[in-house]
Design a protein around this nucleic acid. Sequence first.
DNA 1: CGACGTCGTCGATGTTTATCGAACAGCTCT
DNA 2: AGAGCTGTTCGATAAACATCGACGACGTCG
Lengths: 119, 119
Amino acid sequence: MPEAPIYDPCVTVTTDGMHPDVSELRLAKVLAALGDEGRLTTVQALARLGESDCTRLQADAGLTMSRSTFSHHQKVLREAGILRARVQGSRRFLTLRRDDLNARFPGLLDAILASPASR
Amino acid sequence: MPEAPIYDPCVTVTTDGMHPDVSELRLAKVLAALGDEGRLTTVQALARLGESDCTRLQADAGLTMSRSTFSHHQKVLREAGILRARVQGSRRFLTLRRDDLNARFPGLLDAILASPASR
DNA sequence: CGACGTCGTCGATGTTTATCGAACAGCTCT
DNA sequence: AGAGCTGTTCGATAAACATCGACGACGTCG
């Protein structure tokens, strides 16, 4: 019995080992990632802020969960291809992948951001 | 200690006890409902068919799951406010709630339906 | 009436997810 | 060096979810 593979399938094909390529974005996965109240408000807050590190984003989105939980959600959004992380020093700066999402799913992001704030 | 309430909160406020009112549609819930490969293709198939009973819809969407599972998914979509069920005789006819979704989340449905068939 | 077709519900099972705290690693600043 | 901040990962737990087969309700067709 061979050892279980180490690499995450989501990552194998991908260029940088973290963010899926535009061509790899799957609609169901994007929608599932956004289908959570916390992650949705996170994305809406990020759209306002433009770019932000995790701590500020979490505060700005008004999320009271623990940091580890937020880290988990951030990962889900990243793996779905919704946001991009750029590490600088000890901080991780997040941005919405607006262009990529628009290229692959035209109008989707606008519709979601324009929607009444999560309510 | 009082007994737990019997009624599903999703249903209590609602007019007909099955379909949420337009004003009750929650974006996160809609997205979560669509964030499943099977349900997404179901909705896309339903958009093509216009109206369909469950059996035909399931076949047309190419879903091989059991009927009880499909029934479950259909319920999720219904409770999220994405489709409407009209019972006639022994059959249940399903339609997309296009107008309601457009009214509440303009552009969302179009973006989703226009997207490359689930891939 | 009786067979069949269409569906929802129930109970069980296995998987995925959300959540937390603890521990850890890397930067920054003094 | 040492304290503090930023953020991830791990292990545990509980809740939610997808899935199935069996059953029952109801309509329809012969």
